[in-house]
């Protein structure tokens, strides 16, 4: 069993500056921030290393941090430019009984994160959900399509904080 601090030291030794920081400010559980373009390799290491054995991805979720420049529109909505989106990975080792949170931050304008679908198969649909609702592009994903919204949904990604719902979808009025 290893703590987040110990895992951070291990990762830091192996990947150097691609491991950006360890955040262990309470009351939030400690998490490690990783470069989005190395996450695939890091995850393989976390899964296969004998001292870590993270064999289970409990959850993978996309987050809109909404930390860019907010511009109010005439209709009361806002548009956000700049800032970041992030992906959060919750890992567990069922063998060694330890857990880990990893975050990657990616720019809102061009959100690209490496896919981990070939590390844990369950990441496939989780990543499709994050793509569908937040709009994060997962590089080398086997089948990056929308999973919840209709395939022909053109209004964007609904869980973005500056999302605007369309008036009509296939002739059906959408607002109340």
């Amino acid at each position: 069993m290893k703590t987040a601090e110990e895992i951070h030291t291990l990762l830091k030794e192996k990947f150097n500056d691609k491991i950006i920081e360890l955040n262990s400010i309470t009351p939030v559980e400690p998490f490690i921030v990783v470069d989005p373009l190395i996450i695939h390799e890091v995850c393989f290491y976390l899964r296969d290393d004998n001292d870590l054995q993270f064999n289970s991805l409990m959850n993978l979720s996309g987050v809109d941090n909404a930390n860019g420049e907010k511009k109010p529109e005439v209709d009361g909505s806002i548009t956000i430019s700049g800032g970041t989106l992030s992906v959060v990975y919750h890992l567990e080792s069922t063998e060694l009984k330890h857990k880990l949170k990893i975050k990657v931050f990616t720019p809102r304008e061009n959100p690209e994160v490496q896919s981990v679908a070939d590390v844990w198969r369950c990441a496939d649909w989780h990543e499709r959900e994050a793509y569908d609702l937040i709009g994060i592009n997962f590089l080398n994903h086997p089948d990056l399509r929308r999973i919840l919204m209709p395939y022909d949904w053109e209004a964007g990604h609904p869980l973005r904080k500056d999302y605007k719902n369309p008036e009509f979808y296939h002739g059906m009025k959408v607002p109340y």
Partner: peptide, 14 residues
């Protein structure tokens, strides 16, 4: 009715 971006607000619309 308000925040359901994915929900049709009444089946009588179709």
């Amino acid at each position: 009715w308000e925040h359901g971006y994915h929900v049709l607000k009444g089946v009588d619309r179709v």
